[in-house]
Amino acid sequence: MTRLRVGLIGTGPWATQTHAPVLAAHPDATLSGIWGRRPQTAADLANAHATTAYEDLDELFAASDAIAFAVPPDVQAPLAERAAAAGRHLLLDKPIATSPEAARTLAAAVAKAGVASVVFFTLRFAPPMAAWLADRSQEGPWFTARADWYSSFFAADGTGAFDSPWRADKGGLWDVGPHALSVLTAVLGEVTAVTAAPGPEDAVHLVLRHESGASSTATLTLRAPAAAEGLVLEFRGEQGTATPPGWGESGWGDSTDAFRSAVAALAQAAGGGKQHPCDVHFGLRVTDVLTEAERQVAARRASELPARSSAQAP
């Protein structure tokens, strides 16, 4: 199979630590060039991986068969739409956008162009987790499930890891919410209904119904106290309770191995092979669920304001 020429958009930590090194060494791909909003940073990253830095996006598109993205979601969506219109396959980051309009426009552009798409939901591509989820999806029926992400990226006593403006603004719902939805839907099927309630700080509690008839819950935050950090993933059904052995330890979500698998999935799809379930249309469905949850949380927080004001009045 001809190696897929993949251009990279982005020069931040993900691009530097994961995307560029994997693409430069992948057996199914060639890193055809890099474009970034900071030209000198793009040039430095390109030099480190023996490729070309482009200041013109159209030139990057011309040198590539596919484009990988490592930029914030609302920067990604319009650039990916341009890449699809140019006939380039897409390796997108999650979430694909933070508005349903932008996500729907991107999905329509992909469909119109007839290009392949893969969205990099890390856990769906990390080999151990992908295999574990596939096994659980074959067992069933499942009664309920739980997926909680307690992270402290922005807590006062946290590390500030992956500190970025869009994460600080959108919170755990949009950053770790896609991870929770990706693993829950892999086993229980698509989300048919969502109920969302706010917790402290950016915490959001979700109750989900799935097309299989099962229900699930998720708690999502980037501002948990550092001592309260942790991940929970479990499925419950007639066969008992299933949790990945050693869940939360290194390996289950290794980004390098996962991205390597995502590149292979895109190469296969671009070559006319099997399309991965985590495509742009799945990305759109995730955006729709998160948008509805965000709407409900905002409405509930707004309804609490008068009560809080009254309680604080002298």
Rank of each mutant, 00 (worst) to 15 (best):
E201C: 01
T256Y: 08
E229G: 04
Q239Y: 05
G283K: 04
A307N: 10
T243W: 08
L184D: 03
A267C: 06
G271P: 01
R260K: 13
D257H: 15
V187W: 06
A298M: 06
T256H: 09
G240E: 13
L284K: 00
S250Y: 14
D279Q: 03
A299L: 14
A293I: 08
A299F: 11
A227F: 08
G253M: 07
D202W: 10
T219K: 02
G213Q: 09
T287P: 07
P277C: 05
A227S: 15
A214H: 10
L188S: 06
F259H: 03
T291A: 12
A196K: 10
G213F: 13
T195N: 13
D202H: 09
P200Y: 07
T243Y: 07
S261C: 14
R301N: 11
Q275M: 03
L231M: 15
V263M: 06
S215P: 00
P277I: 04
L284V: 06
R260N: 12
S309G: 00
R285A: 12
V297R: 00
E249R: 15
P198A: 03
A197G: 04
L184W: 07
E234W: 14
P277R: 05
S255D: 12
T243N: 05
L188A: 04
E229C: 05
A203M: 14
T291V: 04
A264M: 07
V263H: 01
W247M: 12
A197E: 15
A226N: 14
E304H: 05
A299Q: 15
A226E: 14
R308V: 04
E190R: 14
V286C: 11
S250V: 11
K274G: 02
L233R: 06
